[in-house]
């Protein structure tokens, strides 16, 4: 079986290439889950609640997907 170990030198080179760039990816299953009703959170609302200090225990109210 192939061992996909990476040397420190190459890791360092790759990590510098990566920098602080985004690595986000989302698959069909997760996209479906997120686009379901009531799973898209309104961040604006969440932020407003946070600013207003009334966001309870850090739980944000979910909003229906538009």
């Amino acid at each position: 079986m192939n061992d996909y170990a990476m040397s420190d030198e190459l890791f360092l080179e790759r990590a510098r290439e990566e920098g602080g760039c985004m690595i986000g990816a989302v698959g069909a299953g997760l996209a479906k889950a997120m686009s379901s009703m009531a799973v898209n959170v309104s961040l604006y609302e969440a932020q407003q609640r946070s600013v207003q200090g009334n966001n309870g225990a850090g739980q944000f109210k979910a909003a229906k997907a538009k």
Partner: peptide
Amino acid sequence: WHWDWSTK
């Protein structure tokens, strides 16, 4: 950044 894992 609109993801909320606690619900999804």
